[in-house]
Simulated scan of single mutants.
Amino acid sequence: MHAGNTLTIDRISKRYGDVVALDDLSFEVRPGEIFGFVGSNGAGKTTTMRITLGVLSADSGEVRLGGRPVDLDVRRTIGYMPEERGLYPKMKVGAQLAYLAELHGLSRRDARSAVARWTERLGIDTRVDDTVDALSLGNQQRVQLAAALVHDPAVLVLDEPFSGLDPVAVDVMSEVLVEKADAGVPVIFSSHQLDLVQRLCHRVGIIAAGRMRAVGTVEELRGAGQTQLVVHAPSAHDGWADPIDGVRTLSHQDGRTVLALDPGADDQTVLAAALRTGPVHEFSLQRPSLTELFREVVAA
């Protein structure tokens, strides 16, 4: 159990010449939490992860694990899965994983048993004597995950771990992340698959142009977005709800109206107005999905 190991990203900034890659970025990933890190390409996700691992140094700010600045000893306790994948193509899977486990401080014997455990768990135990370049991309991905897990890390930092995986492998990967979090490990992963993020993550951070634009639970983020109301009133004309304070018509077709409600707008007033036009067959509140919210945040 790795209790008390909060991963803290404290006001890190990084520039490349005139380009600001990260601008005073702060957030934390708590023990036992799965934190989803989302943003467009070039938003700063990979840079953040590389700085977390110490592969890249920040211009200012600090990364801490359990209150300790990340030095070489702390770095050994991190399980990292890089986006550009970092395996030796000509080395055999089993030998490579055992080598990486020993690099992280496991004895030869413990390394061997960890390799056996994780290759079996990830469904690649029959491929341990194959070289990495002989594997399908999905299986290479599984080996890369095994490499991040083989030394029983105190924290998991995974850059796009789900890209290129088939649905079965996605399920296995998801199970492993949940299991690690349940054991008290802070888990952070970046992904463009927002449905997965919405399903798996306790909290989500949305980064754009090197700054954290929104952070919170999926429910908090969705609650902060604009609520939509779907009203099916066959006799209503277009614009029937526009006079009501804080209500805007998004679309109106065949008596079906989609309305945007500002925070504090009264849905009961809308219902009364709809009933004045005749019968109402549908009246339902919809909160934005993480995908819609992401578009809103990034566009803003």
Results as ranks from 00 to 15, higher is better:
L72R: 13
D267Y: 03
R287L: 02
S191Y: 04
V297E: 05
R108M: 10
H232Q: 02
A241C: 07
L290C: 07
G36N: 05
V187N: 11
N139E: 08
P288Y: 00
A101M: 04
R68C: 05
K90D: 13
S190T: 06
A208L: 09
Y80V: 07
E120C: 14
V218A: 11
D238S: 15
H281F: 15
G123F: 06
L25C: 04
G225T: 14
E62N: 07
Y16W: 12
E220I: 03
P153T: 04
L285Y: 04
H237A: 15
L135C: 10
L221A: 07
T119E: 10
D73G: 13
L135P: 07
E83W: 02
D71F: 03
I124T: 09
V270C: 09
G164K: 07
N5F: 02
H151S: 05
V176E: 14
G225K: 11
V231G: 01
R76S: 11
A154I: 01
E296Y: 04
A146K: 03
S174H: 12
Q228T: 15
G61L: 01
L229C: 08
V29F: 01
L135Q: 09
T126M: 14
D262A: 15
V93I: 07
D129H: 14
A114M: 01
R199L: 13
L145K: 05
R142V: 03
R213M: 10
D254W: 04
P161Y: 03
G44T: 12
